[in-house]
Design a protein around this nucleic acid. Structure first.
Length: 852
RNA sequence: GCGGGCGUGGCGGAAUGGUAGACGCACGGGACUUAAAAUCCCUUUCCGGUACCGGAGUGUGGGUUCGACUCCCACCGCCCGCACCA
């Protein structure tokens, strides 16, 4: 009776919830609704402790809100398309579909024992044809609404594997599998016009007041609105049809410091020059050997090539500037061309020093002008500086004012135009892969690109494909591509690109509101359940996934699939930290790392060694858990040994949810012991035991304070502090000499408070203490305000800001009464030594500070 | 490189600008036991000396304030993102 056996009680209560349909999401007009969603998992194979943390957090919120009387929607699904399934197929010869569905089955089996309050009837995987059929329908709707178009874009091409590589698959400029040098190749691809929404997506961030400030900031910076000047530098003589070079600059105020005009290696002029200039062609070829990621481009050594061309400064036709091709200029941003002002931009200065280009240094300064050394002076945007001989007549102005004045000047003189520019680029959704949602269009020789007819959806992925040769299996499938044109009926070819998996995850939250609807959403259901009241997931999704989803919600509204109120789909966002773990590695003969599972390593004070061989192991502390690095912890073992409640309690205790947590084994045992202790309080309670009425009252007061504190912790996503209060309350009950009846009351309250974290134990406690029905249906306890009022408060007394004593005063005491009491304190008398304090600060209910 | 964040005892961490270290782990001591496990009780930021007390202390250096872990500036370290990883 007194021993807690999770293996018996956990399945028992899970069955009870199932049979009662406790967690089925039902529209209930009598209740407010609450939609809580954790970012759905990729079915990688097994759940890891990070999943447990993520889903326990969401479950805690879901169960809490349910107790507070909300109709809760808490669904689960699978982000099931993606490269790992194809990689597995290539490595071991299976089929991505089998691999994926078998992983889903495994992970579902691992998740169910956690006792999550999920409505499993709404489960789907994004690779289900029923799901991607609706996604294809959205594609066609978006296409017809003008939100999708095609253009050429650059990809990483592996010439041996005949495939496009993701940035993470390019290692030191080589394909990760083939080792062949990667080529940049241009392909015509599909794009979402997310840039049409730049302004709106930026402005709407202000309304997301329940999102972390850092995420809003990151998104704002990513969208990157800037105001600048666009104008042309005239070439001294036309080249290959180019009369001049159009540049965009956010610092037109520094135009008089211009040193050269720079263009991207991919700029049309650069490409045109390549034909006649083999040195430039070689230079560009070398630059293009780098991957396509912005990180790589920015980190690369700054390099340039003098084209020999000259342009005229717009304000002085006699002033000629050289034209360089430079590797740090991105073709995707602005016009792909800039002018460089070395005096006022560090990167430009470094570049000019390296290539011995002129540095003009005398036209503005803070006080007295100094020649530019190795540090550029960036004119501050909000501070006034002195401008010397500025063409727009500036003398004293902030950078902001100078930019505005310069733009006005240029517009007035008709040689330039103020432009609002966004960094945000359109979203390329084409992927040249098999395991993704087929793009439902057909290429017809006569009709061009024609969308598939809606009644023909889904365009299904063929099952009979193989991964034993290079290239996309859809391209070489004998029949799949060949279909009649939906418009004219003549033989035509299917698009073989599939969609970016970000598309799948950009609307799944809407699909959960009506997972079986014959259209992407059911407006009645969507109007009831949307928005997601609380979204929970990793900070690594702060930009792309969340931005794409915000775009999708707008596009779905435009095409009639979501109400206007759902244009911002996530009311509140919480970004949880990652679970990290040390990486253990040794090295092979060539110095390449070999990774080891934590259970294969002994860690002691002298260092880490392999259990088997005793070989010394390098320890890389707290890295993100990843299968390839083998620094993973399998929650299954913990659940098997201690039960789900212990695992849930443990991942919620100690670390604040937003922070990364380093996994250690030590805590799980402690959590298990604590739950056992709580259970014994219930099991060994004599409910008829007499007690002291003062003790009864003190216990009731402690219970009320705990209700208050635990509630506050949950509301504020500080679950670790809620748990700390529950530990303290356990100690209080354990030590209390209150009557059995009073203790039973306290423990029933404890069961309610623990039910979001340890739902099985809470049910068991509730039943043992004679609670009616399920604790899941018992509602949330309310703290009696009368019990929360204290009679006296203890104020710390500081002398010169250092704590030197304390003082008990009646709760309502006013300032002057406290002052009088403070002056009588011995410690204060001693410090004053007969004199008067310089200052006496009294903050009622808080603190007293005596300044002597 | 750019954008964003984090940094508190041996460890995880707590603290509306107001008693730094709640709560837990680990360590140490004790009770119970033939013994062990389990359980219960006590101690524990560091330094100095007897329980009382003094000094230092929240990555580093400055600043604002009666008062700073908290706000500001600079630096160091670590983490996340950088558009084809999910």
């Amino acid at each position: 009776m007194s021993r807690l056996t999770p293996s018996e009680i956990e399945p028992k209560w899970q069955r009870a919830w199932d049979e009662a349909g406790t967690f089925a999401a039902r529209r209930d007009p009598a209740k407010p609704k609450y939609y809580v969603l954790e970012m759905f998992p990729y079915p990688s194979g097994r759940i890891h402790i990070g999943h447990v943390r993520n889903y326990t957090m969401g479950d805690l919120v879901a169960r809490y809100k349910r107790s507070r009387g909300f109709a809760v929607l808490h669904p689960m699904g699978w982000d099931a398309f993606g490269m790992p399934a194809e990689n597995a197929a290539m490595a071991s010869g299976g089929h991505p579909k089998d691999w994926t569905y078998s992983n889903i089955a495994t992970m579902r089996d691992q998740m169910k024992p956690l006792g999550l309050s999920i409505d499993w009837s709404r489960e789907f995987a994004t690779c289900d044809p029923e799901y991607y059929a609706q996604q294809q329908r959205l594609f066609i709707d978006f296409l017809e609404a003008g939100l999708i178009y095609r253009k050429a874009a650059v990809v990483n091409w592996d010439p041996v594997d005949m495939t496009v590589l993701a940035n993470e698959q390019v290692i030191d400029g080589k394909g990760w599998r083939s080792g062949a040098p990667v080529e940049r190749r241009e392909l015509v691809q599909w794009f979402f016009k997310i840039s049409d929404y730049s302004e709106e997506l930026l402005e709407a961030l202000d309304g997301l007041d329940k999102w972390p400030e850092k995420v809003r900031l990151m998104q704002a910076n990513w969208i990157g609105k800037s105001r600048g000047l666009q104008f042309s530098f005239a070439l001294t003589e036309p080249v290959a049809g180019h009369e001049g070079i159009e540049v965009y600059t956010t610092r037109p105020d520094t135009l008089m410091g211009a040193s050269f005009v720079g263009i991207s290696p991919d700029h049309p002029l650069s490409r045109a020059l390549e034909a006649e200039n083999s040195d430039l062609a070689a230079f560009n070829a070398e630059i293009r050997r780098l991957g396509t990621s912005e990180e790589e481009l920015e980190k690369a050594e700054k390099r340039g090539f003098d084209t020999g061309l000259k342009v005229r400064h717009p304000l002085n036709p006699d002033w000629e500037l050289p034209v360089w091709v430079a590797n740090f200029i991105l073709m995707d941003y602005g016009t792909g061309a800039i002018f460089a002002c070395p005096a006022h931009d560090q990167r430009d200065l470094d570049f000019c020093r390296k290539y011995d280009l002129p540095v003009i240094d005398t036209f503005l300064a803070l006080d007295d002008p100094e020649p530019v050394g190795d540090v550029a002076f960036v004119p501050p945007k909000t501070e006034k500086v002195h401008w010397v001989d500025h063409f727009a007549g500036l003398t004293e102005a902030t950078g902001e004012e100078a930019i505005d004045a310069t733009i006005a000047f240029a517009e007035n003189a008709s040689w330039g135009q103020g432009i609002t520019n966004f960094r945000l680029r359109d979203w390329g959704l084409s992927r040249q892969r098999y395991w993704g949602c087929p793009i439902p269009v057909v290429h017809c020789e006569d009709c061009g690109v024609v969308p598939e007819k809606r009644e023909n959806l889904p365009v299904r992925l063929p099952d009979d494909v193989s991964f034993d040769q290079p290239g996309n299996p859809l391209d070489r499938h004998p029949t799949w591509r060949h279909v009649p044109c939906p418009a004219c009926g003549k033989p035509a070819l299917r698009e073989t690109d599939t969609m970016d998996t970000f598309v799948d995850s950009s609307w799944y939250f809407a699909r959960f509101t009506a997972p079986d609807a014959p259209t992407p959403t059911d407006m009645e259901e969507a109007s009831y359940w949307m928005n997601v009241d609380q979204y929970i997931g990793g900070i690594e999704h702060a930009i792309l996934h969340l931005l794409y989803s915000r775009f999708f919600a707008r596009a779905m509204h435009l095409t009639g699939h979501l109400p206007a109120s759902a244009k911002e789909p996530f009311d509140a966002l919480f970004t949880q930290g990652m679970v990290t773990h040390a990486i253990f590695q040794t090295r092979d003969d060539q110095g390449r790392p070999i990774y080891h599972l934590p259970e294969a390593v002994d860690v002691s004070e002298e260092g880490a060694r392999l259990k088997e061989t005793g070989q010394a192991v390098e320890v890389i502390p707290s890295a993100k858990m990843s299968k390839s690095k083998k620094n993973v912890v399998d929650p299954a073992a913990i659940i098997e040994r201690f039960g789900a409640d212990t695992a849930r309690w443990f991942v919620m205790s100690d670390s604040p949810p937003e922070r990364d947590v380093e996994w250690t084994d030590a805590g799980a045992e402690a959590a298990f012991k604590h739950l056992g202790r709580v259970w014994r309080l219930v099991a060994e309670l004599d409910r008829s035991a007499p007690g002291d009425t003062d003790e009864d009252k003190a216990l009731a007061r402690a219970a009320a304070q705990t209700v208050e504190a635990v509630t506050e912790g949950i509301e504020g996503f500080a679950f670790n502090t809620s748990i700390a209060k529950l530990y303290a309350f356990t100690n209080t009950v354990s030590k209390s000499r209150a009557s059995g009846a009073a203790k039973a009351d306290a423990l029933r309250t404890m069961a309610q408070l623990m039910s979001p974290m340890t739902p099985h134990l809470a049910e068991e406690m509730w039943a043992a203490l004679g609670g009616a029905g399920l604790v899941a249906d018992a509602g949330w306890p309310e703290a009696d305000p009368a019990l929360l009022v204290e009679d006296t408060v203890t104020l710390p007394i500081q002398i010169n800001g250092k704590r030197r004593g304390e003082l008990a005063v009646p709760a309502g005491a006013d300032k002057s009464a406290i002052e009088a009491l403070v002056m009588g304190e011995p410690a204060v008398q001693r410090a004053l030594d007969g004199g008067q304090p310089k200052k006496l600060i009294v903050v009622p209910g808080r603190i007293v500070n005596v300044v002597v």
